[in-house]
């Protein structure tokens, strides 16, 4: 066998897990370093900029809340693309990607909910309102947890991946409907009493730290994602090795 080339020429080259692992090994320190630098810059900016005259200091919560909320949606999109990859192209890494993304997505969604409610308490005077946005993010959180539960309930990773890919796609089709219906539901019952999230018009003062933090969080997500994918690949390898070892041991005993 010739030496496998580690150069990634196109997307299907990523299908070889060994190549993917090699790429991750090269890539992840850079990604992690970049993430740390951006976080340093973003945190510095978000604590040195002026507070909003209306919202005061609490506007700083926005710099973690908005990126977390944005990631919670982007992560689901990544999972839906991976699900398509599993079902349509049968890309061997797609199911690994979907499985690795689920806990990370759940984490960021949880963060978005927690910071949102910490922002809501001083601004709206309550920890939780059944606002359209909050409710749909909460439903998203429930769906992440359901997906994790489904993945954990099945022993065979290949079958679990396919079946949860179906669920991810059904959920992805449903998310716009849920969002739209929740908005309709909310406007029917409590019109305009809720303070809008985009209260202050964003000016560059807030926009710069927000953007940097958003990019930093996104990079953090991708770093965690590829590392979690690496763990998942290793986990599957170990399972395969164990099975081979058990089979070999059984054969030996049978021969003896």
């Amino acid at each position: 066998m010739s030496e496998p080339s580690l150069a990634i020429r196109n997307f299907s080259d990523l299908a070889n897990p060994t190549r993917f692992l090699a790429l991750v090994a090269v890539l992840w320190p850079w990604l992690a370093g970049l993430t740390l630098c951006l976080f340093a810059a973003g945190l510095y900016l978000s604590f040195t900029t002026e507070g909003d005259y209306q919202q005061g200091e609490t506007v700083r919560i926005m710099y973690v809340h908005v990126p977390a909320a944005w990631l919670s949606m982007m992560c689901y999109t990544v999972m839906a693309l991976s699900a398509l990859g599993t079902l349509v192209w049968r890309h061997p890494l797609a199911d690994v990607s979907a499985k690795a993304a689920a806990p990370i997505g759940a984490g960021f969604t949880f963060l978005a909910l927690v910071t949102g409610s910490l922002w809501g308490k001083p601004m709206w005077g309550t920890w939780w309102v059944w606002d359209a946005r909050l409710t749909s993010v909460f439903v998203l959180f429930l769906m992440y947890l359901g997906l994790i539960a489904l993945n954990r309930a099945m022993d065979d990773p290949a079958r679990a991946a396919k079946v949860s890919a179906v669920l991810i796609l059904v959920g992805f089709v449903n998310i716009p409907i849920i969002k739209f219906s929740v908005e309709w539901w909310n406007t029917l019952h409590q019109p305009a009493s809720v303070v809008r999230m985009g209260g202050p018009t964003i000016d560059p003062e807030f926009l710069h730290p927000l953007l940097i933090m958003a990019v930093a969080f996104t990079l953090l997500f991708f770093t965690l994602h590829i590392l979690a994918m690496r763990n998942e690949i290793l986990r599957r390898r170990i399972a395969v090795l164990r099975r081979h070892a058990a089979r070999a041991a059984g054969r030996k005993k049978g021969a003896a």
Binding site: E57, T58, R60, I61, V64, H65, A68, L111, V114, T115, L118, W119, K121, P122
Partner: peptide, 9 residues
């Protein structure tokens, strides 16, 4: 609140 949310993050 700001501190708690950053700690949570």
């Amino acid at each position: 609140y700001v501190a708690v949310s950053y700690i949570a993050a």
